[in-house]
Design a protein around this nucleic acid. Structure first.
Length: 327
DNA sequence: AAAAACTACAACCGCAATTCG
DNA sequence: GCGAATTGCGGTTGTAGTTTT
């Protein structure tokens, strides 16, 4: 038996608020306050056929005094991005750091603009993703970017020696100058096997990619059997294999209980968006890996990412992720 | 000029947490 | 302590407006 609805849905208006409704709600609250009960509020306002929940949302997000809309400053951009990287999609917490901004506003701003600004998504690609989302598909991988601390709220659990990893402006990566405030204590993304790449590599693609959305494999992704390491991310360690420039980037998983999941490459979910559309395929991958049970999952299958497609120099990085820079 | 593609944002929905009787 | 009511939150959707083809 489900819960009783908060209001009589047949008798409440939905959709955009009219100026008259706004005026009624605003006027009432300014005179009488909310009375501490949003559900009961609309019944006290003559002619307002809205549910309490809708009134609350309208007031908090639009009508209450000192709300700012649009025109986010660069400083606000930085704060939002920095906090998102640190705490994920805790919009209410982020909003608390930005006076006059609502969580809804920040969420919309992030979803429609900042995210693209950061990840440099192209219109077409974004649209494809949006459509996929609306079909109830995919985007689990993007969603997995949320709440990097979800599975591990104790910040002290993060690997102490690596806690200062911050997202870099890629142009600044040359100089190892962190773009985001250095004091940010950020959760680690997945890290690669240090020994498998030249230590002198000035910019390691995979390590950097991991900073742009490496994900925690939460329960909803079906990886709940994974042994999470101390940083809240499971152990998924991409390593380089092969010898030619065509060598394939594969992913190996250390201390990983793979029960039921045979394709370790899927642990790249959450990073695929950094690659071109053509990487995404459906069906078997043609490389002898049984994608069988994965095909119907909400997470699309991806071709192995070829090393040649990954930027390995600062120049290539900047070219590929030119839009990454906020400034 | 029209259609398609895309963006931006308000609002809704469902769920979890909190409060209340 | 328990269950219902309410609140708060984050994800998602609807759609008007804008830009591109």
């Amino acid at each position: 038996m489900g819960r009783a609805p908060c209001c009589d849905k047949a008798n409440v208006k939905k959709g955009p608020w009219s100026p008259e409704e706004d005026a009624k709600l605003k006027s009432y609250i300014e005179k009488h306050g909310t009375g501490g009960n949003w559900i009961a509020l609309p019944q006290k306002i003559v002619g307002l056929k809205r549910c309490g929940k809708s009134c609350r949302l309208r007031w908090l997000n639009y009508l209450r005094p000192n709300i700012k809309h649009g025109g986010f400053s660069e400083e606000e951009d930085r704060i939002i991005c920095s906090l998102y990287v640190s705490i994920g999609s805790r919009w209410s917490i982020i909003a608390a750091q930005l006076p006059g901004r609502t969580d809804n506003d920040i969420k919309n701003y992030w979803n429609t603009r900042l995210k693209k600004k950061l990840f440099g998504k192209q219109r077409k690609e974004h649209h494809h993703q949006q459509q996929a989302t609306r079909r109830g598909n995919a985007l689990k991988q993007m969603q997995q970017m949320k709440r990097p601390l979800e599975n591990n709220n104790n910040a002290t659990n993060y690997g102490a020696e690596n806690n200062n990893i911050a997202i870099f402006s890629l142009n600044e990566a040359h100089n190892n100058i962190p773009y985001w405030p250095q004091q940010q204590q950020l959760p680690l993304g997945p890290h690669y096997n240090q020994g498998s790449l030249p230590a002198s590599d000035p910019i390691n693609p995979i390590e950097n990619l991991s900073k742009f959305g490496g994900q925690s494999m939460g329960e909803e992704s079906g990886y709940s059997n994974m042994n999470n390491n101390a940083n809240g991310y499971g152990h998924f360690l991409p390593i380089m294999q092969g010898q030619s420039s065509n060598q394939m980037v594969e992913v190996e998983v250390e201390n990983y209980n793979m029960t039921g999941y045979e394709d370790p490459r899927r642990v790249l979910c959450g990073l695929e968006f950094l690659f071109e559309d053509h990487h995404q395929i459906l069906g078997t991958n043609g490389h002898g890996c049984d994608m069988g049970s994965l095909q119907s999952s909400s997470c699309p299958n991806y071709e192995p990412i070829m090393l040649q497609d990954l930027p390995t120099t600062a120049e290539q990085y900047n070219a590929k992720f030119d839009d990454l820079r906020i400034l």
